[in-house]
Design a protein around this nucleic acid. Sequence first.
DNA 1: GCTTGTGAATAGGTTCACAGCT
DNA 2: AGCTGTGAACCTATTCACAAGC
Lengths: 234, 234
Amino acid sequence: MTVTPVQIPDQPAAEPARQLPPATVSRLTLYLRTLNGLLAEGVDQVSSESLAESAGVGSANVRKDLSYLGSYGTRGVGYEVANLSRKIAQALGLTHEWRVAIVGAGNLGRALARYAGFETRGFDVVALLDADQMVIGNEIGWLRVSDVAELEPVLEKTRANMVVLALPAGVAQSVCDRVVTAGVHSILSFAPVALSVPDFVNLRKVDMATELQILAYHAQRLQVPGLEEDRPSA
Amino acid sequence: MTVTPVQIPDQPAAEPARQLPPATVSRLTLYLRTLNGLLAEGVDQVSSESLAESAGVGSANVRKDLSYLGSYGTRGVGYEVANLSRKIAQALGLTHEWRVAIVGAGNLGRALARYAGFETRGFDVVALLDADQMVIGNEIGWLRVSDVAELEPVLEKTRANMVVLALPAGVAQSVCDRVVTAGVHSILSFAPVALSVPDFVNLRKVDMATELQILAYHAQRLQVPGLEEDRPSA
DNA sequence: GCTTGTGAATAGGTTCACAGCT
DNA sequence: AGCTGTGAACCTATTCACAAGC
């Protein structure tokens, strides 16, 4: 038994091998951030150990992650910052221009629209949409808020290829469906619901309430070793 | 071989067994959300299958997760919504009152301060702090912005037991250190850096740039089946 | 008959430890 | 001597499949 795990017998494997493990992909973004910092500081070599430290993971983990991209390190020395940064950016698809439309111009949507972090990392916010007539037409950051009724033409005109949903739970699914139908298949949702999408759509979720609840779980576990549950206190 | 995995030979196991798997904890928050919705609709029984559907996971997964809390389902019938909701809330530590201080009143911090989702889920935003003199003293939502120089007394006065960091990368570590020293050990960070904290601190990260980059990776993989790598274009 | 609860099987991820190269 | 690259071991998580109970 113990079959060799090769499953794709027709790819000639000229490229560094597609399909990185998901856990690796998310760590690569962290390494990239560190590398770009080092690049700005003029550092040009880095070890797996120090990359590990600034990403908060183990160094073996870093080396294994990087090995999926190929062998770009030098034994006894480390990795060349500029080269590695380029390779990771390439692997992550950051050589494309990504045009992001944000649907929902409530508190969160507006905050995201003004968030400088996107622009600097190759993500261009090209539209901001809302359903509220009071908000439509307002200037937020560099953008004017469009009517979500115009979603499809706006996506097409701006050639958006990613959408961020910053919407209340109730309307998220229907807007999501329209986004998918309009041909945008990469969606980041901040809505506190599970959205259902076809397999070919990339959907990621960020859920603040969930994060706080997870913290609550751990906090409670530490605070209550067995006694006192809700000390009313003075 | 095949040792039984019992590792805590001194706990009498009166409680439903502490230490849930992390993956289970995050899904429990999703089930809880669904259950509270059903509760509001007056539904009183639910199957693992329909819980699974609304959380976007498999039903065996749901049953295994719930089994860590004990056997609260009825075979052939399902789970009693009110009861299960209560059990999960209990397991997650949501019977406590959680008092959250938000540090950073920029776009994101303000959006979080006004985000209604927190209040309704047992998280009370009790303070909002910033370093910018232009912002200190402003009213945002129900709160007046405090000076981050006053962090320690504010945390103490408001008895905050969680902190949300909505800060730029540069200052996040130093504020984080002060928060920990001040005795708050549950931290949710939106800052795009890896923060280092002692082991006893619960730190979670939400990173929007990372999420978009992960989307970019998947999007690029689908869009480029093998050709054109960086087409210089017009 | 229908749905839970759970051991067994499988898949995925991390850590170890060391050979291989500079 | 130092650091990478990687098989092997280990641990965590998901899925399967079915017996147990209503």
